[in-house]
């Protein structure tokens, strides 16, 4: 394996940068640019190329953590970043207008990669009053015949990020 890397993806504001920052041993490298569009209400900056973090394994191997840009117009980066990746973490923000549509976008765009590797889906801000319950995400996956792990998580907490990785690794290793 030329490079060991995990990829975090999901819509803008779902917490990809935060999740990488929670476990990276170096300060996360971000390619933030000023946001000029609808994001302005919630975020001043948005990731245009990637976020990057790193964890050194005990044999010196580097586990690289990449975050993709959120907006669909940066889909060119999605395909570049997943090359040679070990697995995918999709972060969804349940306070966005249509989180299930978001899920569909990322599942479809990363379908080949997920099929070759593995995925874990995390729903953040799961208790948001306007967001669908977690059962709706499970129903959606079941309707598509997909048995993927979908979990509620608060990615500001390191333990939750580690739980996602735990699930992903189990899935990669034993599924």
């Amino acid at each position: 394996m030329s490079e060991i890397k995990l990829i975090f993806t999901g819509p803008p504001g779902a917490g990809k940068t935060t999740a990488i920052g929670a476990i990276s041993e170096i300060p996360p490298v971000s390619t933030d640019v000023d946001a000029t569009d609808e994001l302005l209400s919630s975020k001043d900056h948005t990731t245009a190329a990637m976020d990057f973090g790193e964890v050194t394994l005990d044999d010196g191997t580097k586990l690289r953590l990449y975050g993709t840009p959120g907006q669909r117009r940066f889909a060119h980066m999605w395909q570049i970043l997943v090359q040679g990746g070990l697995g995918l973490i999709i972060l969804l923000d349940n306070s966005r207008p249509a989180p299930l549509d978001d899920l569909e976008i990322y599942l479809d765009n990363f379908a080949d990669f997920i099929e070759r590797t593995g995925v874990v889906i995390a729903v953040t801000r799961a208790d948001h009053p306007d967001g669908p319950p977690i059962e709706d995400f499970q129903d959606y996956l079941e309707q598509r015949g997909l048995v993927y792990p979908v979990l509620t998580a608060d990615i500001r907490r390191e333990t939750d990020v580690l739980m996602l990785l735990n699930v992903l690794l189990s899935n990669l290793e034993f599924a």
Binding site: T31, D32, V33, D34, A35, T36, D37, T46, T47, A48, A49, M50, P69, Q71, R73, F74, H76, M77
Partner: peptide, 29 residues
């Protein structure tokens, strides 16, 4: 800077929206 095409003048059929997003990534990198 965050990848929205504003205006383009081209002699070929260029996907200016995609190019705008890619150049944004490029400059950010």
């Amino acid at each position: 800077i965050d990848g929205h095409a504003v205006l383009s003048v081209t002699h070929r059929d260029l996907p200016s929206d995609r190019i705008a997003a890619m150049t944004s990534s490029l400059l950010a990198l």
